[in-house]
Amino acid sequence: MTVTPSPRVVVLAGGLSHERDVSLRSGRRVADALRSVGVEVSVHDVDADLVPALVQLQPDLVWPLLHGTSGEDGSVRDVVQMLGLRLLGTGPRESRIAWSKPIAKTVAARAGLATPEFVTLPQSLFRELGARQVLDAIVHRLGLPVVVKPSRGGSALGVTLVTSPDALPQAMVDCFAYGDTALVERAVAGTEVAVSVVDTGDGPVALPAVEIVTEGPYDFDARYNPGRTEYFAPARLSARAAGDVAAAALLAHQALGLTGLSRTDLIVDDEGTVWFLEVNVAPGMTETSLLPQAAEAAGLSLGALYRSLVDAALTR
């Protein structure tokens, strides 16, 4: 692979989503890591000054580290490509597919991955059919416990584990605070892991799985505030299970047409079945994020890994 000397990279971080602060932290850490290996980096927010800045700078590469709607639904990536600039990571079309959890789960299931049974319900349906009847139908169909989450979104915002029928109405209210469509899926008990996939030019490779252990839900606070969650990198899995989750993440990455890097969230149940939950095309890069932990578990320098991702994107 040809290595581009001293590439100029613009990292996009911030935006107006609920995950703005996380994105800013991710952007700063990636920029620092790239500078440590000789990459010229500037970090830009997504605002009215972005397009003029990109036109003026004409960077070699744009790395979107935006979480939430505009960063992961393909829209900002569309704009970058319309300006004739190269992207690091998944393109707009594939990002839109991965961003929709119901569509991503359907694609994963068609590729052969197990995924918990689910229903997708817009907020308007509850007004039209009556909330009680719809909620009763959910419990009848899926049983309990279930997980309620926005059909699009990240960082576990609006996500609730529901163990009793009485808690379901509030869970729906909390979910609709972050989006107008809810995904309700049967909860699966087991070991929760995240598997990051990176492609530094020789094809996608799964990094060691990271196991997530937390008291209570793995919510926004548990993800980004140290102390709430314990991580094991690599995950405490058998060799067979470790291979299975790596294969599942690679299959999801390829089936969804993802590029550069991704992170797949999975659960391994007591029977050893690997369940696909969702995939992220813009994994967090903060001090508690899972991809950096996986890279370090693999013995990789973050600066060297990020530089390899940049070089691969420039030669792809």
Rank of each mutant, 00 (worst) to 15 (best):
T2P: 07
V3Q: 14
T4A: 07
V10Y: 02
L12V: 01
L12W: 03
L12F: 04
L12M: 02
A13D: 06
H18A: 15
E19S: 05
R25K: 13
R25T: 03
R29E: 12
R29F: 03
A33L: 05
L34S: 05
R35P: 01
S36T: 11
S42Y: 00
D49G: 15
V51Q: 03
V55T: 14
L61N: 10
W63T: 01
G68C: 09
S70H: 10
D73F: 05
V80F: 05
M82T: 10
L85E: 05
R86F: 02
L88R: 03
T90L: 04
R93A: 14
R93P: 00
E94A: 15
K101N: 12
I103T: 15
V107L: 11
A108M: 14
A108R: 07
A109N: 08
G112Q: 13
A114S: 14
T120I: 02
L121S: 01
P122G: 12
E128I: 13
E128M: 14
A131Y: 08
Q133T: 14
V134E: 13
I138M: 11
V139T: 13
R141E: 15
S151D: 08
A156H: 02
A156E: 06
T160S: 15
V162T: 04
T163F: 00
T163D: 09
P169F: 08
P169D: 11
V173S: 11
Y178T: 01
A182V: 09
E185Q: 13
E185A: 09
V188Q: 11
G190T: 09
E192L: 10
V193C: 09
V193Q: 04
S196T: 05
T200R: 13
G201Q: 12
G203K: 14
G203P: 14
P204G: 12
P204S: 12
A206H: 02
P208L: 08
V210S: 10
V210G: 12
E211Q: 15
E215A: 14
E215L: 04
D219S: 01
D219Y: 06
D219Q: 05
F220A: 12
R223L: 14
P226E: 06
G227C: 01
Y231H: 15
Y231P: 10
P234F: 00
P234L: 01
A235W: 05
D244I: 03
A248K: 01
A249C: 09
L250S: 07
L251Y: 00
Q254I: 00
L256N: 03
L258F: 11
T259Q: 13
S262R: 04
T264P: 05
L266F: 10
D269I: 08
E271V: 08
T273V: 15
W275G: 00
W275T: 01
L277N: 07
N280G: 00
E287V: 10
S289E: 11
L291N: 06
Q293K: 15
A297H: 04
A298K: 02
A298V: 01
G299I: 07
G299A: 06
L302H: 13
D311P: 03
D311C: 02
L314N: 09
R316M: 10
